[in-house]
């Protein structure tokens, strides 16, 4: 009988070989390639291998500087043109303006070598900061509603979840119409509900409303997913806790704060992290609905990576954006792990 021997030796390797080959070739190798590409000037169509350029891609991507100017004329202050400074002064060579503000009589201009990327980075964070609380808050509300013990709640649960199974491309196309300034249902509904007080909004055409519009749509599409996970968390809380609290005369509000919230803490933490990571990868909605516009207001990190790496054929620069994106996600996960460990430490 050599059965136990079969379970050691070479057998496990054969079982795992296809998966290891697949993951090695299509996950690990591209990742290593990405790291190497970031130090080159490789292009998509050029057959020649790229030349080594050191940290130039990172320098272009991340360089930030500030230009402080005194007015050249007093009274109504007038300043020298930023472009004339960045063209002549060596220290500012290659920089373009990102943002500016007044500081007393001086004017401060934030400069960057790739202002579009830094703007996209800011947009991506802004999206996450808006969508994560909205989506998770809605999801928690939905989970509480369909957990209230009413008849027919499984039907409502299915309705709230149904957008999750729809493709983001389809959702984006349908909502692009709903957001239309003149024809869209959303402006019509807002106008009707406010008796005409709210004037039609050019949701996707206005830089200040385009990202919030994408936030609303994304939360609508995704909330059902978090609802189900939170629902499982809710059902894991012992009924006896609620019964005991009610006997002691606790109000529903007290029950929520002192039983539901602590009981859901781990689930909420998990949901927040997963939603944040997904939010930072924002691409499809932007690509379909706005193409990064208007005036770069909805461009995101992933959108910039595809824009440079694929559409402009600058693979090395696209890969650099990918690597920076991965570093961001890793830092986020490390912070979350640290916080979790500290909390476990406190509990012990």
């Amino acid at each position: 009988m050599s059965a136990p021997a079969d379970r050691r030796g070479w057998t496990p390797l054969w079982f795992g070989a296809p998966a290891v080959l697949g993951l090695g070739l299509f996950v690990v190798l591209p990742f290593v390639m990405a790291l190497i590409l970031t130090f080159t000037d490789q292009r998509l169509v050029s057959p020649a291998p790229g030349a080594f350029v050191g940290l130039r891609n990172y320098d272009r991507l991340l360089s930030v500087s500030a230009l402080v100017q005194n007015p050249v004329r007093d009274g109504v202050p007038v300043y020298a043109r930023v472009r004339s400074v960045t063209r002549t002064k060596r220290a500012y060579l290659g920089y373009r303006p990102l943002a500016g503000f007044g500081l007393g009589r001086r004017r401060v201009t934030i400069l960057a070598k790739d202002p579009a990327f830094l703007k996209a980075l800011g947009n991506t964070f802004a999206f996450a900061v808006m969508v994560v609380p909205l989506q998770c808050g809605v999801a928690l509300g939905l989970a509480l509603l369909v957990n209230a013990g009413l008849r027919g709640q499984t039907v409502f649960r299915a309705v709230y979840f149904s957008p999750v199974v729809m493709s983001m491309v389809i959702v984006s196309v349908v909502w692009a119409f709903l957001f239309d300034r003149d024809l869209g249902l959303i402006n019509q509904a807002l106008g009707a509900l406010s008796c005409g007080l709210i004037k039609p909004i050019d949701w996707l055409g206005n830089p200040s409303t385009a990202m919030p519009a994408i936030v609303i749509m994304s939360a609508w599409q995704g909330a059902g997913f978090q609802m189900l996970i939170l629902l499982a968390g809710l059902q894991g809380i012992s009924r006896e806790l609620y019964d005991a609290a009610r006997i002691d005369g606790a109000s529903p509000w007290q029950c929520f704060w002192h039983i539901t919230v602590p009981g859901l803490r781990h689930t909420i933490g998990f949901v927040l992290v997963v939603t944040t990571i997904a939010a930072l990868g924002l691409f499809t909605q932007v690509d379909v609905m706005t193409g990064g516009g208007p005036r770069g207001a909805t461009a995101t990190v992933m959108f910039e990576a595809v824009q440079h790496g694929v559409r402009e054929g600058n693979i090395a620069y696209g890969a650099t954006i990918s690597v920076v994106y991965f570093a961001l996600i890793t830092i986020l996960i490390l912070i979350q792990q640290l916080m979790q460990r500290r909390r476990v430490g406190e509990a012990a």
């Binding site: 996950v27 390639m33 990405a34 590409l37 992933m302 694929v310 693979i315 890969a319 990918s322 991965f326």
Partner: peptide, 8 residues
């Protein structure tokens, strides 16, 4: 994330 390796 798949997005991070899609271009390479």
């Amino acid at each position: 994330p798949f997005e991070a390796i899609s271009v390479p």
